[in-house]
Simulated assay, not measured.
Amino acid sequence: MTRPKSTSAHVQPTLAQLRALIAVVDAGGFGEAAAELNVSQSSLSEAVGKLEDLTGRPLLRRSARGTVPTPAGLRAVGHARSAVQAAGDVLLAAQDDSQLSGVLRVSSFRSGATYLLPPVLVAFRQQHPAVTVKLLDGDRAGAGEQLLRSGQADLALIEGVSAVDLSLTPLLMDDYLFIAPESRGTQPVTVQELAESPLLLSPRGDACFQRIETYLGRLGIDTSSATEFEQDSVTLGMVRHGLGITLMPRLALLPVPDGLVLLPLPEPLSRPLAVATLPWRARLPLIQAFTAALVASLGSASGQTTPLALPVWNQSPKLEPEARG
């Protein structure tokens, strides 16, 4: 049913109304959104109703999946996110670099959240105790970019060297390795071995599988019969017991389990890692500070002058760090 449009041409939606729409869309229902915002369901319904009065059409509808946006609501919620974000950015832009506060939402894939972010979070918390960092799941292909563009994340660790409409700061190149039972030995890996070995890989929906599928396809190797596992630890356990081989980025292998041999691939494969944000938000002090902390952490860990370098490793089965002078 079409709602009557407001008679005042100058009337604009309030931030409270926009936040109400966003909350209901994200939560999938008025009750859930009210609980998350710690407000009454009636006040949330009233805010969305007033917004619908202004637009002259319904923005939400009930379905078997809960409360979902109508086509008009789907278009509106994207602009609502931008408006709410821009209002908050006014305050963030005025902050002093030495007195940062607020909430920073960081999206990351699993291995980045496990091994790259923890030391950064410790150092960042010590330097900026008034900032709360929330981690978001960006494990599926394109999830980090989508969270940024929808306004649900402020920063995202992503794989790639370019992304449409995003500002990227390169972090490192993460090499993929061949992983097999330790009993295999350390002789060089051949294309024939890759073709003839049972493949144990991550799920087809994530970026890692897609990159490996493309790589093996160039070598003439079909991945249609590969066995998929959600958890890397499960995959490595299967490999350790001789049920197949796998390919994984070096970062995802830390700490290296016993009973495995890790070797270079016949042809190199790597994934470039970067931290991404929206270009018009890249200079916000809070975002600049966290990006700088991440780059500094990687540079310190690698002992290199450039962030585009992982720590130097031996090619031994244990993948131990080389001694540094």
Score class of each variant (00 low, 15 high):
219 L>C: 12
104 L>F: 06
56 G>W: 05
310 L>R: 12
207 A>T: 11
144 G>S: 10
195 A>Q: 14
155 L>V: 09
264 P>D: 10
28 G>S: 10
101 S>H: 14
63 S>T: 15
23 A>R: 02
255 P>W: 10
286 L>M: 13
45 S>H: 14
232 D>K: 01
138 G>Q: 06
116 L>E: 11
213 E>S: 15
258 D>Y: 08
219 L>N: 13
295 V>F: 01
116 L>I: 11
118 P>G: 09
5 K>S: 10
219 L>A: 11
117 L>K: 09
259 G>L: 08
65 R>D: 15
43 S>N: 06
254 L>P: 00
171 L>P: 00
158 I>Y: 02
122 V>C: 00
297 S>Y: 02
282 A>C: 06
14 T>V: 05
98 S>Y: 02
75 R>A: 15
221 I>C: 09
127 Q>P: 00
33 A>R: 01
77 V>A: 11
122 V>H: 09
65 R>K: 15
265 L>R: 02
183 S>P: 03
65 R>C: 04
206 D>I: 07
229 F>W: 01
166 L>K: 00
168 L>C: 06
58 P>K: 01
319 L>E: 04
31 G>H: 04
211 R>C: 00
246 T>K: 00
136 L>Q: 12
208 C>D: 05
103 V>L: 11
204 R>M: 04
218 R>L: 09
203 P>A: 10
164 V>C: 00
131 V>A: 08
61 R>H: 11
192 Q>E: 15
288 Q>M: 10
123 A>D: 14
31 G>Y: 04
152 Q>K: 14
313 W>T: 08
180 A>Y: 04
177 L>V: 15
54 L>C: 05
88 G>D: 07
67 T>L: 02
264 P>Y: 04
104 L>S: 08
55 T>S: 07
70 T>H: 09
37 L>Q: 14
110 R>E: 14
80 A>F: 03
189 V>G: 06
313 W>A: 01
68 V>N: 02
218 R>K: 14
